[in-house]
Amino acid sequence: MFTAHVVVTVLAAAWVAFSAVSVFARAAWVVEPLAEYGVPQALWPWLGAAKTAGALGLVAGLFVPAIGLAAGIGLVVYFTGAVATVLRARSYKHVPFPLLYLAPVVVAMALA
């Protein structure tokens, strides 16, 4: 079970880190929906920083479980907020995207 936890946690952290890099790089497929949802451009670097901290925290949690738990909780709150933002913008076709990032984080926490 420990091996599964490590693999899922590393993959979840990599997936969240990819999302953070996409925000920092201002990939069109990320920032265009953010603008469409009404998320102010001034917040985008903070969103990327939150994802980066969460990804690093998940990996650190393999060595210090309390850090991983805190990072996991933070990411769950972050991506739940992302789902709420998408729903508030009535962009229902985009709801699965934040869920694709939320799911591996939840699984990693469940395996911890």
Rank of each mutant, 00 (worst) to 15 (best):
Ala55His: 01
Leu58Thr: 01
Ala42Lys: 15
Ala13Pro: 11
Phe2Tyr: 05
Ala60Leu: 10
Glu36Asp: 14
Val30Thr: 09
Leu56Gly: 15
Gly61Ile: 00
Phe79Leu: 09
Ala71His: 03
Ala14Ile: 04
Glu36Thr: 11
Ala60Val: 05
Trp29Ser: 15
Phe24Leu: 12
Trp46Ile: 15
Ala25His: 13
Val77Arg: 00
Ala42His: 12
Leu75Arg: 01
Ala84Asn: 09
Val6Gln: 13
His5Pro: 05
Phe79Met: 07
Ala49Trp: 12
Gly38Leu: 13
Ala42Asp: 14
Ala4Phe: 12
Phe2Thr: 04
Val59Thr: 04
Thr52Leu: 02
Ala25Trp: 14
Ala60Asp: 08
Thr52Ile: 01
Thr85Asn: 05
Pro33Asp: 15
Leu69Asn: 05
Val8Leu: 03
Ala27Met: 14
Leu62Phe: 05
Val86Trp: 01
Val23Ala: 04
Ala14Cys: 12
Leu62Ser: 10
Val23Phe: 07
Gly72Val: 00
Tyr37Met: 05
Gly68His: 06
Val39Trp: 09
Gln41Asp: 11
Leu11Asp: 08
Gly81Met: 05
Pro45His: 02
Val83Lys: 05
Ala55Leu: 01
Ala84Glu: 09
Phe18Cys: 02
Val64His: 08
Ala27Val: 13
Pro40Glu: 04
Ala13Lys: 10
Ala27Asn: 11
Val83Gln: 06
Tyr37Gln: 07
Gly61Pro: 01
Ala28Glu: 15
Ala20Pro: 04
Ile73Thr: 02
Val39Phe: 14
Ala42Asn: 14
Thr3Lys: 12
Ala12Ser: 00
Gly48Ser: 01
Gly54Ala: 04
Gly61Phe: 00
Trp29Val: 14
